[in-house]
């Protein structure tokens, strides 16, 4: 059996007396696409943040590509090929799509320190940006100021920015939150067509969307993993039906940030 590329061991994150994540272990193979599901308060986003480095766990280890990154800052993780999108859109709204992409493209290169140079990308970077924009369905929109774009387009740009550094691990934080059904379909299409060698972790409220996109599913409740299975098994799992799918409408309609 091949070794896991991302391995979480006994991760615990505590907020005061509350154990938001309690001894969670998780492992992904290279190229695997995993959804983390669960009701509000299950600990999904906290677990996600422990992987991105936005918070450090109180206990446990995060291993990525064979090295420990448990207490590594987000920008150093970025240099190791970890990219993420944000649940609440976190783009540079006053800047254009091209400028957002330039920032994304240079994050990992020394050219960001050119103090007096021309603000142009290298040929290789330009190609990466063009590819990422094309993959996200935003080709030709370079000059648009981000805050003037629709919400759906902004989510697409989130993905494009995460892709431009050609990451090996992509963490998607509720990419479809707040999107209309047609926008969801479009986004699902974009995610489905991402390169197959990209390892992907997806947090998503929308069960149907998530199950259609991933190879495996982790279901959490009260900070713990209750089920880990394939999408088809999840659909028929009684326990999951109980804690989660039993009240699909309530869950699906809830777009509020989880924590």
């Amino acid at each position: 059996m091949p070794e896991a590329i991302l391995a979480l061991t006994d991760i615990t994150v505590q907020f005061g007396a509350l154990k938001a994540v309690n001894q969670v272990s998780l492992s992904l193979m290279a190229g695997e696409r995993r959804a983390v599901l669960g009701p509000n308060g299950a600990g999904k986003t906290t677990l996600f943040n422990a992987i991105t480095g936005a918070i450090f766990p109180n206990a446990g280890r995060v291993m990525w590509e064979g090295g420990e990154i448990t207490r590594m800052s987000p920008q150093r993780r970025a240099h190791r090929g970890v990219a993420r999108t944000f649940q609440i859109t976190n783009l540079f709204g006053q800047l254009s799509v091209a400028e957002n992409m330039r920032l994304a493209a240079r994050g990992l290169s020394a050219s960001k320190f050119a103090l007096f140079g021309q603000d142009r990308l290298s040929a290789a970077q330009s190609a990466q940006v063009a590819a990422a924009l094309a993959m996200s369905g935003l080709a030709g929109q370079e000059a648009v100021i981000v805050k003037t774009m629709s919400y759906g387009e902004q989510r697409q740009l989130e993905v494009a920015m995460a892709l431009v550094g050609t990451p090996r691990l992509l963490l998607l934080d509720e990419p479809a939150a707040g999107l209309s059904p047609s926008e969801r379909g479009r986004l699902a299409e974009i995610i489905r067509n991402l390169p197959r060698d990209l390892t992907l972790v997806l947090i998503e409220h929308d069960m149907d969307l998530a199950l259609a996109l991933v190879d495996s599913v982790t279901v959490m409740q009260n900070g713990q993993v209750i089920v880990e299975a394939s999408p088809s098994e999840i659909r028929t799992n009684a326990l999951v039906q109980d804690v989660y799918l039993g009240k699909p409408h309530e869950v699906r309609l809830s777009d509020a940030p989880t924590y």
Binding site: P74, N90, M161
Partner: peptide, 27 residues
């Protein structure tokens, strides 16, 4: 030239969103 440079763009990025800059790999 300074504010229009690649470095200047990173400053505008920081003004717009520091957390995002960090996750893109900026110190």
């Amino acid at each position: 030239r300074f504010v229009r440079s690649p470095f200047g763009l990173t400053l505008r990025g920081i003004k717009e969103g520091e957390g995002r800059m960090a996750s893109l790999g900026y110190d």
